[in-house]
Design a protein around this nucleic acid. Structure first.
Length: 418
RNA sequence: GUGAGUGUAGCUCAGUUGGUUAGAGCACUGGAUUGUGGCUCCAGUGGCCGAGGGUUCGAAUCCCUUCACUCACCCCA
């Protein structure tokens, strides 16, 4: 048996309805905030991700799907969307068009990690990017939108955490100071953190090891070392959030794994997903567009992990669409009539199913019941000879004979269908 | 990359210290009702017990190898 590749999953009917619901809500809400959808390629040149995400990150070092194409050029399945959106923004000079550009996109991302709960090799994200403003109001606006979206899809048991990573100017000196502190404590740290001190010292803050957490509690905090400008910026973001009624919590340990983040950073976390507690995360990346060869334009964005988000949506009734009409037929002439009638219903927008394979009426009725059809139309030889069909209301268990020529009209009259 | 757990019917799972023909519920098909669903009853279809090797008179059960899945570390959405 050929099976799906490890970490790649089918999203089956029954589950897919939740996806449609979430994606439709996202589109609707995001568009009220002035965002436009952008569709970007699934593959890009490897350099795009290496330069934006950071050469030394795990994503770039060991998680990307990179293949030579037929001409031997290295192409990479996108591990995230921000780099591609930034590339498109620069390539099409979208900054010439309007001062602030706001995008969202929805689609699959690929990372070669070991799969586990809430983590897959192909996973899906909703991405939001706002380019062209450094106004802290836009940071708050973005978090408001995210928060509103989560409320609308009834994901409430989550927490919005925020932090500031400072700008490039204040982060470099802080980083040096932090490394100095951590190197002295090196002996107490776990092996992973000893490595992190060298590669990405900020990440020692979100180590799960108790001893490491105690050490980092005493370590210098970024928030105490950001410059006056960054500090004012962060205060403004918070003031906006408070005024807008968005609840949040400052988490000084909140750091991001991607190199391009600056200033405001935020994460929506849950305790329901085991090791993967981040449902959505993002922040400001003021240097990214310039780093990728564009003008010096600030930006910010976030990504929502759809698999994670959808697993948090309370299980409601079956969202799948049951047919309005099920047509059961007996005999080959009746079957043809059933096919023609099904078209008539469908062409006026009535969801219609028919019985297949010449099964017994009992079997067809059972199937209609399984599908939760509202009405069953029964066409047999006797009725056909008289030019009539039976219309049965499944819930009421009542049925009547109706002229074949009038059946579509008759069904249309029943309000509950349309 | 590291560690742990689990693999028996389409699905969810039983299966005793190794013992005859491997079970149940759900689902599916047929019947009770010659052309009428849900509830009930009866019957039926459906298994290389993940794969390969070993121990044994005898293996779903014990041992080894391997594969798959799941969870955790790591990383991240």
């Amino acid at each position: 048996m050929i099976k799906a590749i490890k970490g790649f999953h089918d999203i089956l009917p029954g589950e897919v309805e939740k996806w449609q619901f979430v994606e439709a809500k996202a589109r609707k809400i995001f568009e009220t905030f002035g965002l436009s959808e952008i569709k970007i390629p699934v593959v890009e040149r490897i350099e795009l991700f290496a330069r934006s995400i950071g050469e030394a990150t795990d994503i770039v070092e060991k998680e990307m799907y990179t293949f030579p194409d037929r001409k031997g050029e290295l192409i990479t399945l996108r591990p995230e969307a921000t780099a591609s959106v930034a590339r498109a923004y620069i390539e099409h000079r979208l900054y010439e068009n309007k001062p602030v550009a706001k995008f969202y996109c929805i689609g699959p991302m690929f990372r070669h990690e070991r799969p586990q709960k809430g983590r897959y090799r192909q996973f899906h994200q909703v991405n939001v990017e706002v380019l062209g403003t450094s106004d802290p109001a836009s940071d708050a606006e973005m978090m408001t939108m995210l928060s509103h979206f989560l409320t609308e899809i009834k994901v409430t048991e989550v927490e919005l955490q925020i932090n500031s990573l400072g700008c490039l100017g204040c982060r470099a000196p802080y980083r040096k100071e932090l490394i100095l502190f951590m190197v002295n404590k090196s002996a107490e740290l776990c092996v992973d953190c000893q490595r992190r001190v060298q590669t990405n010292p900020l990440r020692t803050f979100d180590c799960k090891n108790k001893i490491c957490q105690e050490v980092t509690t005493l370590a210098p905090k970024i928030l105490e070392h950001i410059c006056a400008n960054c500090n004012h910026n962060f205060e403004e973001v918070q003031r906006n959030l408070r005024e807008l009624g968005v609840s949040y919590k400052i988490n000084p340990r909140l750091v991001r794994g991607l190199d391009y983040y600056t200033k405001t950073t935020f994460e929506v976390v849950t305790d329901k997903l085991g090791g993967q507690n981040a449902v959505a995360a993002g922040g400001r990346y003021d240097g990214l567009i310039k780093d990728l060869g564009g003008p010096d334009i600030p930006g910010l964005g976030f990504a929502i992990g759809l698999e994670r988000l959808i697993s948090l949506i309370p299980a409601e009734r079956d969202l799948s669409r049951s047919p309005h009409i099920f047509i059961a037929s007996l005999g080959s002439d009746a079957k043809i009539e059933a096919m023609k009638l099904a078209n008539k219903f469908r062409f006026v927008g009535i969801r219609t199913e028919i019985g297949y394979d010449g099964k017994s009426l009992k079997s067809q009725m059972r199937w209609a019941n399984r599908l939760n059809a509202k009405y069953v139309v029964i066409i047999g030889d006797e009725e056909l000879a008289l030019g009539r069909v039976i219309l049965r209301d499944m819930a009421k268990k009542e049925q009547e004979e109706i002229e074949l020529t009038r059946i579509v009209e008759e069904v249309n009259l029943r309000k509950e269908i349309t």
